[in-house]
Amino acid sequence: MSILQVNNLVKIYGKGDTTVSALGGVSFSVAKGEFVAIVGASGSGKSTLMHIIGGVDRPTSGGVTVDGNDILRLNESELAIFRRRNIGIIYQFYNLIPTLTAEENIMLPRLLDRRKPDPEKLRAILEVTGLTDRAGHLPNELSGGQQQRVSIGRALINDPALILADEPTGNLDSKSSKEIIDLLKLSNRKYNQTLIVITHDEKIALQADRVITVADGMILRDEMAQT
């Protein structure tokens, strides 16, 4: 059963003579528990694709279904609520809230949902992300790798249907990059977490179950990893 269904997505930026086509009709589906890498040169449209799947941007035409929900039919606030419950997003620049501690940043999607914090779950995530003794630190007291682990924790806290990661290692040194990849892979294996990672990084692409290559807003190749 597919957890993500993308149908003929088209995204055109601008108006009149200056239009730029970022996506020119992209279709694919992802099964539950799959680890998919989307690779492509910069400007190929892969980030646009991710933003549309994550519900922060809207396509010009086409359809996106996440866990059976047609997310394009949701309005702004329904989409926000959907995001906080079903999608975990990880960015290249972490995008943590600077005034909240690591622990509070991880809990943020739950707090926004007015749900009781689940100490067991939090402890497990802090442990998995190796942040147990950093829980009370503010982002600017953490290294880049640690900040990215916080944002992974934030993505995991609600057991989302889908985790989207946009160049999660793009801003990190090779040692931290390896930690992040291992962590993502672990979440995929351990929690059967569906994972879509956009990356330049071949090492990540090699870890994935499936690699989708995007060029000029179209899918160039869609191949299962050779194992």
Binding site: A80, I81, R83, R84, R85, Y91, L96, I97
Partner: peptide
Amino acid sequence: RREFAALQSVGMTQGG
């Protein structure tokens, strides 16, 4: 702006 965007992307509504 970026902080607001981050909050929105983890699911804060416009109302929130």
